[in-house]
């Protein structure tokens, strides 16, 4: 047993905390971190970029890619992101490529009629847009530590309501997915025949699902409180902007300008 466990903790919580984050954004990122899977934190240029810079550039890049009509600008963004990708840890590269491929497949499938019958510029542009934004989001999420992201978000003062909305959606999707699966198994086991009753039980299943996820969320919130969390999250390690951050920022600004003007 370690020494400190023998001592009664002499803990007086500090009254004021200046840098903080709201419970919702904290939880949102917890879920994002869970969803993305794998938490290797290797060293490398992309991992070392300032989290705020990464977050700040990723957002307009995605919007720009979505609205731009310029194949050239989108290709340029894609090239930059592909370069970034090649600088990541090989495990991350593999995961992001897989996700990218799935997105590509999905996009191609959805637009198969268009591809077959009216092979025009627009169709390919759209597919390119989808792949590029998927890669942007994933590079951000894989190369940035969850704690860094919370810090970046808090500094950007993202409106609480927006975060809350995404938070709840994500949280519920995640929890509901797990519970729903188990409950469907249970329902299958009960072997209810195909009649009206079945639809009734399916209906109540959905109801119960919401109550369960609410219950689950409440308990998680309680567990966080028990460990000293009060809706505020302290952020440490403020980082300065480095030369590579500035360079990266300039390249991104250039690309963003291209996306919005070309």
């Amino acid at each position: 047993m370690s020494d400190w466990l023998f001592h009664t903790e002499d803990y007086t919580p500090s009254g004021s905390q200046h840098r903080y984050l709201h419970k919702s954004s904290f939880r949102l990122l917890t879920i994002l971190a869970r969803l993305k899977g794998g938490v290797i934190q290797p060293k490398g240029l992309i991992y070392q970029l300032h989290p705020t810079v990464k977050l700040l550039t990723a957002l307009p890049l995605i919007i720009g890619v979505a609205i731009s009509q310029s194949g050239m600008a989108i290709t340029a963004v894609f090239t930059l992101k592909f370069l970034e990708l090649s600088l990541l840890h090989h495990k991350h590269v593999k995961r992001i490529m897989t996700i990218g491929l799935v997105a590509l497949l999905f996009a191609t499938m959805v637009m198969l009629p268009a591809i077959l019958f009216q092979q025009n510029h627009q169709t390919f542009l759209l597919i390119g847009k989808i792949i590029t934004s998927v890669i942007i989001v994933n590079i951000l999420s894989y190369s940035t530590k969850w704690r860094q992201l919370t810090g970046a978000l808090s500094r950007l003062r993202v409106p609480n309501e927006v975060i809350l909305l995404i938070d709840i959606t994500l949280k519920y999707i995640f929890i509901l997915g797990r519970i729903a699966l188990n409950m469907f198994y249970a329902l299958q086991k009960k072997n209810i025949g195909i009649d009206k009753k079945r639809y009734n039980s399916l209906g109540s299943l959905v109801g119960i699902l919401f109550i369960k996820s609410k219950h689950h969320t409440d308990q998680t919130w309680q567990a966080m409180q028990k460990r000293g969390f009060n809706g505020i999250y302290s952020v440490r390690n403020r980082r300065r902007i480095s030369i590579s951050d500035t360079l990266y920022l300039l390249i991104c600004i250039l690309l963003i300008t291209a996306l919005f003007t070309l």
Binding site: E9, T12, P13, S14, G15, K226, R227
Partner: peptide, 9 residues
Amino acid sequence: KQGSRQFHQ
């Protein structure tokens, strides 16, 4: 907040 944190600790 302060009291609550101390209690939970």
